[in-house]
Nucleic acid binder design. Structure first.
Length: 932
RNA sequence: AGAUCCGUAGCUCAGUUGGUUAGAGUGCUUCCUUGACAUGGAAGAGGUCACCGGUUCGAGUCCGGUCGGGUCUACCA
């Protein structure tokens, strides 16, 4: 078969994903194996995958594929989130573009549009997950508004209400004036801004009768010239109409005389009391605070304490309300400008100064959040927090990387406030609360159950059943118009994807719950992770997952957050088109240290593409050898010619799965070395997996393939041009290649599966091929391989320094006490350093370039005359280095306390270093003497 | 304001319980195209591990402090 010049991902990827699907490898049903469960963090149903998702899904797929290949029944559940605010905003926008105003639609009409929208765009995210190669069980795809899921959410709400954990009340909440809904504390993002602080005059009066005079305005304005006022500082002059007090610190002597007096709000001339509270910091601003209970959380608390009236001067859309009396209907920031103008005109304005501060913005709509008093549903969090905190603190749930997030998690749970769970939206689970006309509320899963609750309530008052029946027909219950916060459904995710809430105790749920690992971004630790733990502990008394792996945030090259507005968020499908899914996975993983933010750079994807090309070309090389094995006759001749030494046989014996029938000496070492090297790396990779250090695991495998396999092993066993290869060497090489592909498969599933099948005819697939047990590596063989590499590199370096062209050959003379080692690798050495002959000498070779490695010396003779000066300089540099090294070793060894206190193996190591360094210095000195 | 992480090669980062004169990728320099791969090969240069002090036979690693940067949390108008 003719293989293309470079690897072409597109056809391969489609072919194999379809094959895996046809074989149902990703589908999981309970069996006798241990489960390995992962639930996907459900992306927004109408969204697209961004780079953060890509990193996340890749990590999960690596873990899931690795588990599937390691004897586990791996089950990865995909799905999506209805994302109430985000989706509703998109639908509203879409309707607006069609010329339809949401307010003109009924709830049912709107939901019809929303579901159409979801059907149209909801599939995008799934196709992207498939493109990336994710091995999810598509039969288990779950949407947070699926029928069973919807019912589960309602069931939980009713249950928590009945337990007294859900309640309804008027509280200060975060209000989004654009989406016109309440938000939870977590949905508010604070940004640093430079605002302004305005200093305003409030007139003082001790008149305890309310001023109603038509002429009050001119009365106060005329008295402004006198000093009879108090100065306050505010950032929000548009809220002064909501002021219901001025507050000063009771210890502040400047204002002690104001006890019992009143201030007059400018422009509307409301008379408000001066109150005293420790809360006010005398050092800040003027030490006098205007109190606006309706529009500031602190003022609200002050208002509660001092029994102040609440004047809400804003409408739900952020315009000024009737209660503001002036500028009614004007948008809040426009009103601020107009009011400032009027304050200046009338003389109430003193000065303004720049003031750095933080402002809360809606995570979804991006507008400035308005603190607002509103009647909402809340979940008591204190009761939920305890077990969730314990599960993590006790180590039942392990967080990776741990130390970094434990403190944050703990602090949040210990200081958690009640969760506002109602949203003034239509897209979501409608709150199962029904109101009668008399201000009673009935919480139940269905209208019928709510009605029967009402009947029960009535029956307590009325014993007459006939009249009760009459009442039931005219109950006129109306359901709460609001829906629940999206996170109030997502927190059930690990349970309800297996119907654990709607059908508790079902077979799947018992088998798959709890999940093995949760992989998610650290930005939703409170939104989602903590709350899933709460729900899991509350309903199952069992953690929802054993490990949490936090991926870092994906940023651009300059370290900026990826965002649509910056245009620095690349399109995943374009990247896959350009580089292939394997390269995208490689690129994002290789530069992604666990838990740290990663800077995304397309260069790392190029590195991935180059890697796939390298793999492809290694395949081409090996395929060239196929069918070029030796004939039986040639093989006999060759085997006869090369008698195996006992040493080599011994070396071979260390690898139990190597054949008894052995090929050539050099291949002997090559195969033995690589077999051991492979085992060594497998041990390393296992450890890294268990520590979730996936990027390091990938680096190790990458280097094993590129450096050890391609650059060394393949070169060592490579036959001469158009020469045959030994049968056994060919088979071993194919086998190594297969094992490497298996090791790499979780990271780069497509190309590895392709190469696995191209290497030889196969019945099985890499996707489900089980890893063989790891064998212990033999250090002696590894050391021998390392020595060979070292010798080759040093000789090549010497060639370079002598400015020898690659084609120019050398004559090599080896002076060593242990020639046996080198005789074994002669054929490799010849090839790798382009020598025509190798001879063994017991003395120096005059006029040759000398290279010293450990205690051995290598003389290199060539046509070209050696540059003795350059070589001398090199040797002197090396000598200096060795001398310095020896000195530092001696310093330790001569220190009695070191010898006494350090571990024995450390001391032994130092002694060996000393001996090696001394021997090497001797060799270098001899070489230098030889030069003259 | 509190918490927390970070500061190692030009750049992005590894460096696991302290123990070779500190590693990788990328970039850079030199050389190399009929022989799997120029999306490549061979080789090389490049670091006072932010700074100061302490513990120790021994510190990039542990402790304290300083400076610089990030992130999260918090009700100072």
């Amino acid at each position: 078969m003719e293989l293309s010049k470079n690897y072409i991902p597109s056809t391969t990827e489609e072919k194999w994903y379809k094959h895996w699907m046809d074989k149902k490898y990703f589908n999981s049903t309970p069996d006798e194996r241990s489960p390995y469960t992962v639930v996907i963090p459900p992306p927004n149903v109408t969204g697209v995958l961004h780079m953060g998702h890509t990193l996340n899904e890749t990590v999960q797929d690596i873990l899931v594929r690795k588990a599937r290949m390691s004897g586990f029944n791996a089950c990865w559940v995909p799905g999506s989130d209805h994302a109430s605010i985000a989706t509703e905003a998109k639908v509203v926008q879409m309707l607006k573009e069609k010329g339809i105003d949401k307010d003109t639609l009924s709830r049912e009409e709107f939901l019809k549009y929303a579901f159409e929208w979801k059907e149209k765009y909801g599939g995008i995210i799934y196709s992207q997950i498939a493109k990336l190669g994710c091995s999810v069980d598509w039969n288990r795809t779950t949407f947070t508004m699926d029928d069973h899921y919807y019912k589960a959410v309602i069931k939980v709400f009713v249950d928590l209400y009945n337990k007294g954990l859900v309640y309804r009340g008027a509280r200060m909440i975060n209000w989004d004036p654009a989406a016109k809904t309440a938000l939870s504390d977590e949905e508010v993002e604070f940004k640093d801004i430079v605002g302004k602080l305005y200093y305003l005059k409030y007139m003082l009066t001790d008149n305890d009768t309310e001023m109603t005079d038509e002429n009050q305005e001119s009365f106060f304005n005329s008295r402004l010239s006198t000093a009879n006022y108090i100065t306050i500082a505010t950032q929000r002059p548009e809220t002064i109409m909501g002021d219901t007090a001025i507050c000063v610190n009771p210890t502040d002597e400047r204002y002690a005389h104001l006890k019992g007096k009143y201030a007059i709000v400018p422009l509307i001339y409301r008379r408000i009391p001066i109150i005293f509270d420790e809360y006010v910091d005398p050092a800040f601003g003027t030490g006098a605070l205007k109190v606006t209970p309706a529009h500031d959380i602190n003022d609200y608390n002050l208002g509660l304490k001092h029994n102040l009236t609440v004047v809400d001067t804003l409408n739900e859309d952020g315009t000024l309300s009737e209660a503001a009396q002036i500028y009614v209907g004007v948008e809040r920031f426009a009103a601020r400008k107009k009011i400032l103008v009027e304050l200046k005109e009338k003389g109430y304005f003193i000065q303004e100064e720049e003031y750095p501060s933080r402002l809360g913005y809606s995570q979804r709509s991006g507008v400035v959040v308005e603190p607002r008093i509103s009647t909402q549903w809340f979940l008591k969090m204190k009761e939920m927090a305890g077990p969730a905190l314990k599960a993590v603190v006790d180590g039942d749930i392990k967080i990776h990387p741990g130390e970094k997030f434990l403190a944050t998690y703990k602090y949040w749970l210990e200081n958690v406030k009640d969760w506002c769970i109602s949203r003034q939206l239509w897209w979501g689970q409608q709150i199962p609360a029904w109101y009668d006309g008399q201000g009673n509320v009935f919480v139940a899963e269905t209208r019928e159950q709510a009605a029967s609750l009402k009947l029960q309530a009535l029956s307590l008052q009325q014993q007459n059943t006939e009249s009760l029946q009459f009442e039931a027909n005219s109950l006129q219950l109306s359901q709460d118009a609001d829906v629940l916060d999206t996170w109030f459904s997502s927190w059930l995710w690990p349970m309800e994807v297996f119907n654990g809430i709607s059908q508790p105790g079902n077979k799947d749920f018992d088998y798959y719950y709890p999940a093995s690992v949760l992989v998610t971004g650290q930005d939703i630790i409170f939104f989602w992770v903590a709350r899933m733990i709460m729900a899991g502990m509350h309903y199952q008394h069992v953690k929802p997952f054993s490990d949490v792996y936090f991926t870092g945030m994906v940023r651009d090259k300059q370290g900026r957050k990826m965002s649509k507005s910056l245009g620095n968020s690349p399109d995943l499908l374009e990247l896959i088109d350009k580089y292939g899914a394997d390269s995208v996975r490689f690129g994002i993983m290789i530069s992604s240290p666990a838990g740290n933010d990663m800077l995304f750079d397309e260069a790392s994807l190029e590195q991935g593409r180059n890697f796939t090309n390298k793999l492809w070309n290694a395949l081409k090389l090996v395929k060239m050898w196929e069918g070029r094995q030796m004939s039986e006759e040639t093989k006999e001749i060759v085997d006869d010619h090369f008698e195996l030494s006992d040493e080599t046989k011994q070396l071979f014996g260390e690898i139990e799965h190597l054949p008894n029938e052995t090929p050539l000496d050099h291949a002997n070492l090559s195969i033995a070395w690589f077999a051991n090297r492979l085992q060594q790396v497998r041990v390393e990779v296992e450890t890294l997996y268990s520590q979730f250090r996936l990027n390091e695991a990938l680096k190790v495998v990458y280097s094993l393939i590129w450096d050890d396999f391609c650059s060394w092993y393949l070169e060592w066993v490579k036959p001469g041009f158009e020469q045959p290869i030994e049968d056994e060497v060919y088979k071993r090489t194919v086998r190594f290649f297969e094992e490497l592909m298996q090791l790499l498969h979780p990271f780069m599933p497509f190309i590895t599966e392709e190469i696995y099948h191209l290497l030889s005819e196969k019945q099985d697939d890499l996707c489900v091929k089980q890893f063989a047990n790891i064998k212990a590596a033999n250090n002696g063989v590894l050391t021998e391989g390392e020595l060979l590499k070292q010798v080759i590199t040093a000789l090549r370096d010497a060639r370079n320094r002598s400015q020898l062209k690659p084609k120019e050959t050398i004559k090599l003379f080896i002076q060593s006490e242990n020639t046996g080692v080198y005789k074994k690798i002669e054929s490799i050495l010849l090839k790798q350093v382009n020598a025509e002959t190798i001879d063994y000498v017991s003395d120096t070779v005059p006029g040759a370039t000398v290279v010293a490695i450990e205690k051995d010396k290598f003389y290199m003779e060539s046509e070209r005359k050696a540059d003795t000066e350059a070589i001398k300089a090199e040797l002197l540099k090396d000598l200096e280095h060795q001398k310095g090294f020896l000195q530092s070793v001696l310093k330790k060894l001569q220190n009695e306390r070191f010898v006494a206190n350090a571990k024995v193996e450390v001391v032994v190591l130092e002694q060996k270093k000393q001996a090696d360094a001394e021997a090497r210095i001797k060799t270098i000195k001899e070489s230098l003497a030889n030069l003259v």
